[in-house]
């Protein structure tokens, strides 16, 4: 695997791709907040939100099911909320007897649980749409222009740049470990957890030192090009009429969603 597999951006020239990144970031946040605010069991609103997402997928040229297919990342966390299924409030709809436990699923619990999962699942899709249609450096710029402190956006920009370099280093380290441990798999596995942890810890320590030394060289390269403690960047973005129209249309959408959700 090469670390390019981390790239989430899909190049394109759709309407969605061309919306100003600041507008896209704000809209993504607004849609997710709206989504989280919808009450339990607001199925028509959830459905409408999903339809809108499918259309946006299509419009951005990603294909109808793009975000859907990538949206299952948040599902494992649903385990954390699974207990609400067995809420004693509401009427029992299903009762399962497992060994000595008597599990009762109530209608209230079912709706509550399903709503939590659906909210989360829709929110993930909205976020996926953002990163699939916006270059990550543009998202970082957007946050900078939205007054996120410069030190954070600068560090995030560095993180993004060196993420790929360091992940490649990790993959090389892991491959080297595999190559070595394969030869001695029989005897070494007896080394147990502590031995494995020590090997992994040494790898992390080694990576730390390499990264530390790399940051020295980067600092030199920055100095050589006139860095004096302040990072300067150009603002490559300008609002267009279409951006304002998008903002307006989305606000209306959010109002409609909230209204439908509360009918």
């Amino acid at each position: 695997m090469h670390s390019d597999a981390f790239d989430r951006y899909h190049h394109g020239h759709s309407l969605i791709h061309h919306i100003d990144p600041r507008v896209k970031v704000i809209l993504t946040l607004a849609l997710i907040v709206s989504n989280v605010m919808l009450p339990d069991g607001a199925w028509p609103a959830f459905t409408l939100m999903w339809l809108v997402l499918l259309i946006l997928n299509r419009v951005s040229g990603l294909g109808f099911w793009f975000t859907f297919a990538r949206s299952f990342i948040a599902l494992p966390f649903a385990l954390a909320a699974i207990t609400v299924l067995f809420s004693p409030q509401g009427n029992s709809v299903l009762s399962i007897k497992i060994l000595m436990w008597n599990l009762m699923i109530s209608d209230y619990g079912l709706i509550h649980f399903a709503s939590i999962v659906v909210r989360s699942w829709l929110s993930v899709q909205i976020a996926i749409l953002l990163v699939a249609t916006t270059q990550f450096p543009d998202i970082v710029h957007a946050f900078k222009h939205l007054h996120v402190p410069a030190i954070l956006t600068t560090i995030i920009a560095f993180l993004y740049r060196y993420l790929f370099v360091l992940v490649d280093e990790v993959l090389r380290l892991l491959r080297a470990r595999e190559a070595r441990s394969a030869a001695a798999s029989g005897s070494r596995s007896a080394g147990g957890v502590l031995w494995h942890a020590k090997v992994a810890g040494n790898m992390a320590g080694q990576l730390f030192l390499r990264s530390y030394e790399r940051s020295d060289r980067i600092y030199n390269a920055m100095l050589a090009r006139g860095y004096q403690g302040q990072m300067h960047t150009l603002n490559p973005h300008h609002y267009h009429l279409s951006d304002w129209l998008t903002l307006g249309a989305s606000s209306i959408l959010i109002i409609i969603l909230q209204w439908i959700g509360r009918l």
Binding site: I151, A157, L166, S211, Y212, S215, I218, G229
Partner: peptide, 10 residues
């Protein structure tokens, strides 16, 4: 600044 950036990547 570059140190913290690279350490975040680390």
């Amino acid at each position: 600044v570059p140190l913290m950036g690279v350490m975040a990547a680390f």
